[in-house]
Amino acid sequence: MIELQDIRKSFGDKEILKGVSAVMESGKVNLIIGSSGSGKTVMMKCIVGLMDVNSGKILYDQEDFTGMDIREKMIIRQKIGMLFQGSALFDSMTVEQNVMFPLDMFGTGNLRDKKKRVQECLDRVNLTDAARKFPAEISGGMKKRVGIARAIVLNPKYLFCDEPNSGLDPQTSLLIDKLIKELTVEYNITTVINTHDMNTVMESGDHIIYMYQGVKQWEGSNKEIVFSKDQKLNDFIFASEFLRDAKEMRQMEMFQDNSWKDKLKKGE
């Protein structure tokens, strides 16, 4: 798991993160949500080490990442997979070469073993026949899946996704959400997603952190979010009439579950 302990980050006189504490659990999809300027992007960059925090600690499986030297951080980073918002594929490389890139950088073994691992990852994201193609020859959704294959090729313990559904149509977005969820459970990965996509929130959010002006405003699951009384969260998530109607329908569905009735009566 990944644990944040009272992390703070400032740029000059402007404090962006104001003492955030949270736990990202393994085998779950952990979401960071919030409007622009809420601090969610800065928080993710701090977690992966692209930015240093001013104070507080970030722990990877109880190891203090913030206190490590460059060599020690490199060891942790070899356990991290990253799916970038724009996929960030190398245009001059084939799909196979893009997925093999982390193996060439950090992996060991001969070329045959590397190619076997690449093919396993491409098979897992249903891109078996795309190995020889270049990024310009495949769709946006396929590029995302190549990005996912590259992110898991080193068998990471931690997977970070920055707006994985950005620029995708609704149907493809659902497929990407499902794939990330399946991989998270299958490999017991600690997955952290920075997203604005409400479908991702409602369908994949095992654990959700809502950031508001640098503070963790709300924390809970996608089941708990539909019963939240936090007005700032509700204004952000259920901004449209359509989403408010969807919320009421989800509440009615969940209220059929006796265990949720008991929780509501107890005020949990």
Rank of each mutant, 00 (worst) to 15 (best):
F227K: 07
K229P: 05
T108P: 00
L243C: 06
V118A: 05
D123R: 14
E72Y: 09
V42A: 06
L127N: 05
T41L: 03
L50I: 10
V146W: 00
Q62M: 06
K9D: 04
G37I: 04
G141W: 05
Q231T: 12
L83G: 10
H207A: 12
K133S: 08
G140L: 06
D169Q: 13
P102S: 12
D64S: 04
A88Q: 06
R145W: 08
I189H: 01
S228V: 03
K14E: 13
G27Q: 07
S221T: 12
A131H: 08
E182T: 10
V29D: 02
L233N: 03
S92C: 11
K18M: 04
S10F: 09
G19F: 01
D91I: 10
K28P: 05
K115N: 15
G34E: 09
A149G: 01
G49P: 02
T200E: 14
L31S: 05
N165S: 15
G81N: 11
A131W: 03
R244Y: 00
L174N: 14
Q85P: 13
M252L: 13
V99Q: 02
D13Q: 14
W218R: 08
G220I: 01
C121H: 02
T191W: 02
E163P: 13
S26C: 09
Q62C: 07
K18C: 02
M82V: 15
Q171D: 10
K14M: 12
R244S: 12
G205C: 11
G67A: 01
E63I: 09
K116R: 15
K263D: 10
K178D: 14
M105C: 12
M202P: 01
D91P: 05
I47V: 14
N54V: 01
N258R: 15
N126R: 15
Q213S: 10
M44K: 04
W218Y: 00
S38Y: 01
K181M: 13
I148N: 03
K223S: 11
L59M: 14
Q256G: 14
I70N: 11
D123V: 06
E186C: 06
E120W: 10
